[in-house]
Design a protein around this nucleic acid. Structure first.
Ligand SMILES: [Mn+2]
Ligand SMILES: [Mn+2]
Ligand SMILES: [Zn+2]
Ligand SMILES: [Zn+2]
Lengths: 142, 142
DNA sequence: CAACAGTTTAGAATAATTATAATATATAAT
DNA sequence: ATTATATATTATAATTATTCTAAACTGTTG
């Protein structure tokens, strides 16, 4: 799904009924320049801010999981206490800012292709992803 | 902490009172050849199998967190639905078997050092870790 | 307009983790 | 050794995130 799409059409094509809740959630998720990394709570908060009518929390969960199942969202595990979703569903690397708990996507060219030398018999590699944890550099800061 | 240590001494040195619960948990965690990757549930199950007297679940949580705080255990996030701990506290890479949900440590020589070209101003890199997801290769399997 | 499957919703249920506060234990002080 | 103190364990309650339930509602199809 891309920016400024007709989500009604897109949802229907995908096999999801374009309810007003789903269209609104798609607008919040996909009508943006950059990748969006969010928790269900982030999303629910955004919805209640940007919308006059409320969407039930169960619907937010249902919709996020439906979109994930259809391949429009990817679940990211960084912090075992928080479940993140990502509008970038490709295999890709992340920076994780430990101060702000924000995820940032890494462009292909920002991390050299990882060379995995080991292989496990009978198993194939599904993905190779790098997580770079960063935090504020307190060296020159009293 | 290493294999066959005197955990009573070790715990005391660390500033933790060597209660019989803690010593037993240390034996289960650290008296082994290889790194141990576990969930609280895995550990609680092992305890109840290997021990005649029970250890309360609260104590298992308390002890794991105490050991983590002292730097003897590291929390690993792979699966947002499960919280893993790791007796290997160094920065290191993992294979994750999606069939069995097992983590496997990666030796230094099995993955080439990852070259991170990007840097974020004001932030320093704390760790660079790779996660290789593997699953059974169903190509030659009817 | 039916008719029907799919969706939303409030609220209940579940599960993992953390908090509470009484009891027990380890260590330090006498 | 006895006592005093800080720490730890425990059963149980509370909290939190997520999922389930079942009734009401809505989108689609004919
Ligand atoms: Mn999920
Ligand atoms: Mn934790
Ligand atoms: Zn991403
Ligand atoms: Zn490990």
């Amino acid at each position: 799904m891309l920016k400024n799409m007709n989500f009604i059409e897109k949802l229907r094509e995908t096999g999801l009924r374009p309810t007003k809740q789903r269209v609104k959630i798609c607008e919040i998720l996909f009508n943006r320049e950059k990748t969006f990394h969010f928790t269900i709570n982030d999303l629910a908060k955004k919805i209640s801010e940007e919308l006059n009518e409320k969407i039930s929390l169960a619907t937010v969960y249902n919709t996020v999981h439906a979109l994930q199942k259809k391949g429009y969202l990817k679940e990211i595990s960084i912090n075992s206490h928080k479940s993140y979703f990502d509008t970038n569903t490709s295999v890709h690397h992340h920076f994780y800012d430990e101060d702000t708990q924000q995820l940032i996507d890494c462009d292909e060219n920002e991390i050299e292709t990882v060379n995995v030398k080991k292989n496990i018999t009978g198993k194939k590699i599904n993905s190779v992803e790098v997580l770079v944890r960063v935090a504020s550099d307190n060296q020159n800061q009293n």
